[in-house]
């Protein structure tokens, strides 16, 4: 691509990665997840100083329960929308399901992972990554499947009397174990190990990646970050489907602010959660 000095102001091209629907769903799952973590984890780590402080700030355990349930409804809405989209995608044959381009994991992901480890140790070049990398696929499916488990068990705990009209009481014990552990797992995966690192900590995205809020990526970065998708599209001649003119400067600035605000909030929330969890281990 000829970029930089040649492409003067006004002729900026971007790669459109996420549609309005996907961006909306990300907002939905993001806000509801923050609400759920901040009102759920204090119960799990009840002995932590920060849990008590957070509960007091929210207005008590009952208020937290109310926020938890409201957020849960939004979280379930995300799931319904995403599942509906998937069903529609498959039924209407919107695109290939098993290909390098799709979100479904395949053999290439395994090879990419091995390639990445070789690269980490300086034993080879960085592999040419797909449209969705293996850790992005993990992130996506872990959240999707996790929501089934955490939402299902959460609904049982929300309506324990109704649940035990059909099922034995031990179901509630199992639900609590699933909910509590899955919540911890999801919080770790999203706030620390996979998602936040992928969105903020990688060299390619540091300090923050605005693609999920704006939907686009400067073409220069796209070529660099998703070389394989770029090659494929170039070959198939489908590049013009995803490359468009950049939005207006005002909109670009707005997305920049949204990204910055969310990043700051996410950083604070993750730090708080981290302190909340390690506090009882230290003191």
């Amino acid at each position: 691509m000829t970029t930089g000095t040649v492409a003067t102001e006004g002729v900026r091209l971007v790669y459109r990665r996420f549609s309005a629907f996907h961006r909306f769903n990300h907002y939905l799952v993001m806000t509801s997840f923050f609400g759920l973590v901040l009102t759920g984890l204090p119960l799990k780590f009840k002995d932590s100083y920060f849990s008590q402080q957070l509960m007091n700030a929210i207005g008590g355990v009952e208020a937290a329960g109310f926020i938890h349930r409201t957020s849960a409804v939004l979280n379930i809405l995300y799931f319904v929308l995403e599942a509906g989209y998937m069903a529609w995608y498959v039924a209407a044959r919107k695109g290939p399901i098993f290909s390098d381009d799709s979100i479904v994991p395949g053999k290439k992901d395994w090879q990419d992972m091995k390639g990445m480890f070789r690269w980490f140790f300086g034993r080879g070049p960085k592999p040419a990554l797909n449209r969705f990398t293996y850790w992005e696929k993990f992130d996506y499916w872990a959240l999707f499947a996790g929501t089934v488990l955490i939402g299902g068990s959460g609904l049982m705990m929300w309506f324990p009397e109704a649940t035990t009209r059909i099922l034995p009481g031990v179901t509630l014990n199992v639900a609590l174990v699933i909910h509590s552990n899955e919540a911890f797992l999801a919080t770790g995966v999203i706030f620390i190990f996979v998602h936040f690192f992928s969105a903020h900590g990688r060299p390619e995205s540091f300090p923050a990646d605005q693609v999920i809020f704006s939907g686009y990526l400067p073409v220069e970065h796209y070529v660099h970050e998703r070389p394989l998708e770029y090659e494929n599209r170039l070959k198939d001649g489908t590049l013009d489907q995803v490359v468009t003119l950049a939005p207006s400067p005002q909109r670009r600035r707005m997305f920049g602010w949204i990204t910055a605000a969310v990043t700051v909030f996410a950083f604070l929330a993750a730090t708080y959660t981290f302190l909340l969890i390690i506090w009882p281990l230290v003191f």
Binding site: W119, F120, V174, V177, L185, G188, V189, F197, P203
Partner: peptide, 28 residues
């Protein structure tokens, strides 16, 4: 069984995720 399954899963995911992250930062 469910409790033990989660114990193993959490340790596995966090260890793998942690190592992957640290190596990535190191290379970066």
């Amino acid at each position: 069984l469910v409790a033990v399954f989660y114990l193993v899963l959490i340790i596995a995911v966090f260890s793998f995720g942690g190592i992957h992250t640290l190596l990535y930062i190191y290379r970066g």
